[in-house]
Write a protein that binds this DNA or RNA. Sequence first.
DNA 1: CGGCAGGTGCGGA
DNA 2: TCCGCACCTGCC
Length: 315
Amino acid sequence: MGLSLRPAAPFHFDGTFCKPSHFPTPHREHESGTFRQTLRWGDTVYGIRARNAGTTDAPAIDLTVFSERDLDEGEVESIAAELSRRFDLAADLRSFTELAQSDDLLGPVEQRWRGMRVGAGYSLYEFLAITCVLQNTTVRRSRDMLSALFEHYGTRVRFDGTELSAFWPASALAHDEAEQELRALKVGYRAKTLHRVACDFAQRDWDMSTLRALPRQEARDKLLGIYGVGPASIWYLLFEVLHHYDAFDTISPWEQKIYSRLLFDSELTDADKILQEVHNRWGDWRMLASHYIFEDLFWRHRQDPIDWLRDLIRL
DNA sequence: CGGCAGGTGCGGA
DNA sequence: TCCGCACCTGCC
């Protein structure tokens, strides 16, 4: 069952649904003009297919929802609305475009990716599982931990000629033995965090419409109350899940190295200096601007490997 | 082998 | 409020 979505112009389909700087997860796949993912929504797992059916200035997406049982129209509409929020389809990026045009670094990048959205596509709980496996380790190990979680707790879903994994519900990790189970999956001390967060969410999920409506500072304080969320994870959540375009006030070591290259053509520049520079250049758009620059860099890296970047990510 | 990595919570000053 | 420390595991 399907319907048509109308993102606000300008819109960049492939930039929104494909994020080369994020490591691949088994719940989504992308090829030019087509995106598929699984979606756990309510008590049901759906298959989602989005197809580009428009242009940058006259955007349209053909959305198809797959399910084992019959779907009613209201159900499909609520899924469409949720996906529109997750992928930030209504975003007005016109003043961002204006800002980019007067910036030597962002300008050419924005031209290539005009209309690209944040586009994480996860629920809050799912994204917390991601930030948890990102903590204090290397990209390779984060990827391995997430694969193990999907293999053990995820479900395989076949639809539209493909097979993808779906995220597990929080309740799957909430039973008493879950922490021991998780340790066996080599997630280390993160087992405690994953278990505790799962218990919290299994008992009471968040009211996302309230959270989305909060000013950044209040949303920040609320999210910091979640066990396992600290200064490094908080801006991932604020940006990717809540779309606060200015959520960029701390910088992690690997990102510091990348910004040092991009902004100062050096191997390592002082973190405060980078934050100052980013603030001066892009103001309230600084996190979105950084996102554009990162995706552009990783996209170019994928086409034609960049040596220093390969050394940094060591995948 | 010891140190460290894309952090965080906790106890003690 | 700020600081030092433990923590699973894999890689150098």
